[in-house]
Nucleic acid binder design. Structure first.
Lengths: 232, 232
DNA sequence: CGGTGTTTTGACGTCGGTCAATATGTGTGG
DNA sequence: CCACACATATTGACCGACGTCAAAACACCG
């Protein structure tokens, strides 16, 4: 499993998207030697809230939902991670247990990189540390935006936003349906609302021809209308 | 302004609380020489959303609210920063404009540290970079919690949480009133609700003897009742 | 085919936002 | 120290958004 061109981090395209690109050739080699590649099937758990992580997970393909269980028993999806994203960095850096669960939405391929490699590189290669810092600063900014959206926007606006987000970050197929297919429950969980409320809004959008549906699939018809709706 | 024991970073107690403690003696000296101390009066702005920052602000005393304007024109307070916290790190790291505004809730004393010093140290001292990273990881975790709270908890629960947060992070005076005094509008803005809704809940808590009030001042009487309320 | 899980729709009640009126401060200058 | 203007706090009334419960329509599978 450790040979073959495409399983070497040095040659992995995915690396271009994340902080690993700031690693030196030597560091990458070391990581590549100690990493393991894992297939995660749709619905399977990568790690759980409260778990201690011994490394980070670099997503090569597929999509993962990062969620947190709230006191009332509902899952809140905090982030969707895709190709190139690194999961579990926070826990490794702050040496705490994970505050989120990661679960596969699609079939996924992820690389597990042991903690020690990451920590060692952080401590010796400032470029890498700064690169990680930059990514985390970005995440934090996004989190602030989410906080404001959650507290100030209506469910309808948030659903509209979620659809646009899905289109912009995951694209659509040749027939105009979103590439990323989430269950209604998952959509509700991203938006932070009850599944039924979410479904009702979807029907409304459909009736108004803002979107089309086909089974679970959702396609955006009138992007403009959704955008207009978002800014109150 | 650059002399006197207490204005040298090397001797500043506040430093113990933040990432500056990972700086070397030499780095600190340099920072101390180029920093400027500023008095910010209650209500004044430290920096605005959309502004480009040429450095970071280290809080020596007083409290600042970090807020973001939402599309519907309301301010959402994302974080309250106090002694030892460093403001504006994100912008400096990611070289973007600020996504938040910082305004003084109290009279404040802050030190402005030019960007170059911070960036240079980040690039050369891995200890410092990792320390900053650790702080940011912590902030991100807190942000996740806030997201879940905002989407899953009722306004009443969030108000209760806000009071406990204020007690735990800012303390109370000899008469049992919270040290940090926020206007009802600010409290509403932390909680993410309308001022009137917030006030109504405060009256309810008062009637039930969970809290007492005296002008703007709020004192917690039955901490337990508030805690119980929070977990649904 | 029945069984199980997801999507959809209906009905209903409550939470919370908005508008408006009143009270209570709080500061200003006379 | 008072009078006035202006900000903040409080309360009431109203209504729409959203969560909840329940049932029906559909799907997917063995």
């Amino acid at each position: 499993m450790k040979d073959g061109k495409e399983t070497r981090c040095e040659n992995c395209i995915v690396r271009q998207f994340n902080s690993l690109r700031a690693m030196s050739k030597e560091e990458l080699k070391k990581v590549s030697d100690s990493k393991t590649t894992k297939i995660v099937k749709k619905g399977e758990v990568i790690f759980q809230e409260g778990e201690k992580l011994n490394g980070v997970y670099c997503v090569r393909s597929g999509v993962s939902k990062l969620s947190k269980l709230s006191a009332n028993g509902k899952d809140q999806i905090v982030k969707l991670a895709t190709k190139g994203q690194v999961l579990g960095q926070r826990c490794v850096i702050s040496e705490e247990v994970s505050n989120l669960s990661a679960r596969a939405v699609d079939d996924m391929e992820v690389c597990f990189i042991p903690k020690d490699d990451v920590v060692h590189t952080l401590n010796t290669n400032p470029n890498f540390a700064v690169e990680v810092l930059r990514h985390m600063a970005h995440d934090l900014k996004e989190a602030d935006d989410v906080i404001v959206n959650m507290s100030q926007k209506t469910v309808k606006q948030r659903v509209a936003e979620a659809f646009l987000y899905m289109k912009n970050n995951f694209g659509e197929d040749s027939e105009g349906y979103l590439t990323l297919t989430l269950s209604r429950e998952d959509i509700a969980s991203v938006v932070g609302t009850a599944t039924e409320s979410c479904i009702r809004i979807i029907s409304e959008f459909k009736k108004k021809k803002y979107i089309k549906t086909s089974g679970k699939q959702i396609g955006i018809l009138d992007e403009r209308a959704l955008e207009d709706m978002i800014d109150s």
